[in-house]
């Protein structure tokens, strides 16, 4: 067996990632700290001094803070509930996993069909006689409803990916541990809290990292439901790049998104750290 074979096999992927991942990221980083060919923080100053930056940053963080915990609880519930099923397990799992294949833009439009003024929510409420006139939900006068709709759409769409990772993780935990805990007198809740959850840490880690980063990239759902009413970091990046044609500021935004992503990845890695000796 030739010694160079593994390197030969890795070469295309490595070269690709260097050209299309490492190199462009250095480019954005450099772009963000230069203006007119000189090192400067002008782009960051321009980005942060704009009134929308604070809004966008606050909205992005708020969305992540609302969406991710709900998803964590929901995906854990779905995964454990499915595990208890004797019949129709795979069918239910498939149904739960369906949103996995749906794009954020489509998810935004789906929830738009519910929340728009002539949409299904108003149709139902009027039909039930609860209201007389359809209400305009997604308006700048009621940002909280827009936020609520976005949270619903995000929870609906992206819980599946966490659930899939957690279901796979649960599958890797041998039954004996739970049974051993039961023999030693642990209740169902104690078994979940003291045995399952700690053993699930590696899966939780991945699921959370994946979800938190995607939450910071929230974009199409927000545009579809809130239009320009609800600026987020990603939509502002798009705005600076496209409509305001200022690549430097867009790059500065990108660096901000990158910074919070890396920061939260590190926090999650730290918080759910599994020591090498405790791994199975």
């Amino acid at each position: 067996m030739p010694r160079y074979l593994p390197y030969l096999l890795l070469l295309p992927a490595t070269v690709f990632l260097i050209i299309f991942f490492l190199y462009p990221f250095t480019q954005v980083a450099i772009e963000s700290v230069t203006s007119n060919g000189e090192w400067s923080l002008a782009n960051f100053q321009k980005a942060t001094s704009h009134w929308k930056f604070g809004e966008a940053f606050k909205n992005t963080m708020l969305l992540a803070a609302l969406v991710v915990p709900i998803q964590l609880v929901m995906s854990l519930t779905m995964a454990t509930v499915v595990q208890k099923l004797q019949k129709g397990r795979s069918a239910i799992l498939y149904i739960f996993a369906i949103p996995l294949g749906i794009s954020d833009l489509a998810a935004g439009l789906i929830w738009l069909s519910i929340f728009e003024q002539s949409g299904f929510l108003n149709s139902m409420l009027v039909g039930l006689g609860l209201i007389e006139q359809p209400i305009l939900y997604l308006s700048y006068q009621s940002p909280w409803i827009i936020l609520f709709a976005i949270v619903l759409a995000e929870v609906w769409r992206a819980t599946a990916i966490m659930m899939v990772i957690i279901v796979a993780g649960l599958g890797l935990i041998p039954r004996e541990y739970g049974e051993a805990a039961e023999v030693f007198g642990a209740t169902r809740w104690q078994r979940f809290y003291k045995v399952t959850l700690p053993m699930l840490r590696p899966s939780l880690q991945t699921a959370l990292i994946l979800r938190v980063i995607l939450a910071f990239e929230v974009f199409a759902v927000v545009i579809a439901l809130g239009g320009t009413q609800m600026p987020v970091l990603m939509s502002e990046t798009f705005n600076w790049q496209f409509n305001l044609q200022d690549r430097g500021v867009a790059a500065a935004y990108a660096m901000v998104i990158l910074a919070v992503s890396v920061l939260f990845t590190l926090i999650i890695l730290r918080a759910l750290h599994v020591p090498k000796e405790a791994r199975t």
């Binding site: 490595t14 991942f21 462009p24 480019q27 990603m234 690549r247 890396v262």
Partner: peptide, 27 residues
Amino acid sequence: GKEVFRFLVVMTRAFPLPLLALPLAVM
């Protein structure tokens, strides 16, 4: 070098990849 490569692959996960579109647009 196996671990270096794995690290490179796993690292992509911590980055908001759609942002790559910005510098690549220029390139």
